[in-house]
Design a protein around this nucleic acid. Structure first.
Lengths: 152, 152
DNA sequence: GAGTTGCCGTTCAAATCTGAACAACCATCG
DNA sequence: CGATGGTTGTTCAGATTTGAACGGCAACTC
């Protein structure tokens, strides 16, 4: 442990901008999804992950890691999605402890319907405002942090 | 309304990296603050904003905008902080509707104690991993998005 | 100065998240 | 086989967030 190292003005500005913007964007996305499909952002992300998985199914634990949610939060949200027929649960054939969340055809249809409006928000407020250079730098930066956090 | 514009591979990678990383980092920060001071991240941010305000006090609405929280969430969290003596409430002298949240000396002391450990996390996982160029680009990018979201 | 409109912060019920505890299962080793 | 330790997903209670509704006050108009 060395001396406490504060952030200089530039670093603090960077951190504050990141923190504030991620929260604001999260809010905007939540609002759009709720209005257009009655989905929360976590629910939407679950559908996206399942749609991208082979067989449109994933183990609960994998899914939780993918969407960055706690196990119990995922159990809860998959329960909601199952109630409305967007996802089904199957016991994992290779591991009786396991549960597979499976995207239903209705889930896939809803996702196709909702995705454009969602991505339009992502474009409008983030992607389309960034230069190629900024996009590249941000991706690089985020990946470094992600990698570090996934390891620890 | 034009055609739906999907994100190309580079754009989607950028968005996914941002989304995932912000959630992972949020989790790590929450964990650190809880362990080191029993504070949640929203609570910590409230203390930070108050500490930086003139007179160490802010109107509830300003504070809510600053920390990007809903009015009711802020009411709740300020209530928690008041219970443990880190913040006090005062009625606003210039506007009887208003409430001023004021950082107490105990709140200031706790913040000084906790900030280094918190900032160490921010450094370790984000700031220290970024080149000066990445830091600059990320700040610029985040500010553009923040500005757009604050206007709408 | 009465009326109207809008802002301020709180309250409330409902939804969601958290973390610990738990039961069931897997894997390894002796 | 039997014991041990680790994993899996769920459950539960408690904490937090959300959004709408509300009462109180301010600001502006006529």
């Amino acid at each position: 442990m060395t001396q406490p190292r504060w952030l200089d003005q530039t670093e603090m500005a960077a951190w504050r901008a990141f923190l504030t913007t991620s929260h604001l964007l999260e809010r905007r996305i939540e609002e759009q999804l709720k209005a257009s499909a009655g989905l929360t952002h976590p629910q939407y992300e679950i559908l996206v992950r399942l749609a991208g998985a082979t067989g449109r199914r994933l183990r609960m634990t994998e899914l939780a890691k993918g969407v960055v949610a706690s196990k119990s939060a995922l159990t809860y949200q998959v329960g909601r999605l199952e109630e409305v027929g967007l996802v089904e649960r199957t016991t994992c054939p290779s591991d009786d402890r396991g549960v597979l969340a499976v995207l239903t055809p209705a889930g896939a249809r809803l996702l196709e319907k909702v995705a454009p409006g969602h991505l339009e928000i992502v474009r409008e407020y983030l992607i389309d405002r960034l230069s190629r250079e900024e996009l590249r730098a941000m991706t690089s930066a985020m990946r470094k942090t992600e990698e570090a956090l996934r390891s620890g």
